[in-house]
Design a protein around this nucleic acid. Structure first.
Lengths: 231, 231
DNA sequence: ACCTGAACACCGTTCAAGT
DNA sequence: ACCTGAACACCGTTCAAGT
């Protein structure tokens, strides 16, 4: 079943235009709104095609006329979310600009409970809307303004991106089960691992802190002053 | 159904010991071997409780006497894999030691096609065997040898961990669909994103390279020379 | 043009009954 | 002590038929 052009635009067909056939019972916009509602109500894990259709009061298979598949739905949802993030005022200095942009993107995604699943979608950046690409643009521009080459800028962006994805994912998967202290070694470590044993009592305290900006500063400073590059 | 102690040890009950009842048809070791086989043969996605039982020629529900649930199975599999990784010779210098340890761990996990799912398991580090904790120990020890405090060492370890997880996950999820160039913006970017447009032709080349060690060096150098710390 | 239920091909997990 | 099939409560997706 091909998703036709009207559907792809998110427009509702104009009945007055002389279109024929059974009238639509829903639209892409309605579906996305219902999905957001369902997530707010019952949590991200409960967002399934079948539940979503039930909530909309339509047949599950009808959704496939408006959305290619589940992954497509999730990517659409993400783009909607990102478009709505206010783009922050960025400082002039390239180094500070990179950090401010990355922190803004991080905070927005980290506040989004379903970010984790979407971030691991295949070819994620490739499916982002224009409205989300300002982050990539901003970081590339700042790195080049700092005096680096095109390929170096891509490498630096990607490295920052890896760190951001990792941080968000690890945190997301520990918030779900707060009982299991976030990536803390579970049992008191044995005597032949003395530093781990010594660190153990402090682990939870550190894990509870938002160390993302600090780590990012270290990473960006390291990247901008690095003298050997892979490209 | 509680998994009893014999099962938890992975030992097969000794019939000669006078135990009574129906004899076991399988063991934890056999299950893990079959799971490895199934993954090698049909791929990680095909590892389901039901398929695994079918391959073993036993009822699906029998598996629950040897393994708590699917996640437990996956964590057991991971620990088995990690225990088998040869622990590398590490250089003396603390900074080089951190990098060598992290690169070794990264390369092992990156070569493991199912790492991605496991890395996002809740409280991942907390479920690691002793045999895997040498990485944590080594990095903590090296950071402290470099002159940092206990909490700083934890912070630094965690930051390195985030970067490693992110890199592995992003790469794993792009290898699956090689068609979608790894995190490349899909369509040629519009004119109001000039740096992205300029970077576009080079993106795939950079994405194809293994930039992990380089990024790691930048991160570690940034972290070790950082003057402000969250803890 | 759009919607639908039936159907396919699966999941993980629980539980009472059986050996 | 261990194994089992039936059952529960779900999935995503396809497709022929209906309006």
């Amino acid at each position: 079943v091909a998703v036709d052009q009207a559907v792809h635009d998110g427009t509702v067909p104009q009945l007055s235009q002389g279109r024929t056939g059974r009238p639509p019972v829903t639209s892409r916009a309605e579906i996305l709104a219902a999905a957001r509602h369902l997530i707010d109500q019952d949590g991200w894990e409960k967002l399934t095609i079948r539940r979503l259709a039930t909530q909309l009061g339509i047949g599950a298979t009808t959704l496939y006329h408006h959305v290619r598949d589940r992954e497509d739905l999730v990517v659409l949802l993400l783009n909607e979310f990102i478009a709505q993030i206010p783009r922050p005022e960025l400082p002039e200095d390239p180094r500070d600009r990179i950090i401010a942009a990355a922190v803004a993107a991080h905070d927005a995604l980290a506040a989004w409970p379903w970010a984790a699943e979407v971030l691991t979608t295949d070819g994620f950046i490739g499916r982002l809307d224009e409205s989300a690409l300002w982050l990539v643009e901003e970081i590339l521009a700042s790195v080049i303004a700092h005096g680096h080459t095109q390929p170096q800028a891509i490498y630096i962006f990607r490295t920052i991106w890896y760190y951001m994805v990792g941080e968000i994912l690890v945190r997301a998967h520990s918030r779900r089960h707060p009982a299991a202290l976030e990536t803390t070694p579970a049992n008191f470590p044995p005597a032949h691992l003395p530093h781990l044993a010594a660190a153990f009592p402090h682990w939870a305290t550190i894990a509870a802190q938002n160390t993302y900006p600090n780590g990012l500063r270290a990473l960006v400073d390291g990247l901008l002053t690095q003298t050997t590059f892979p490209p």
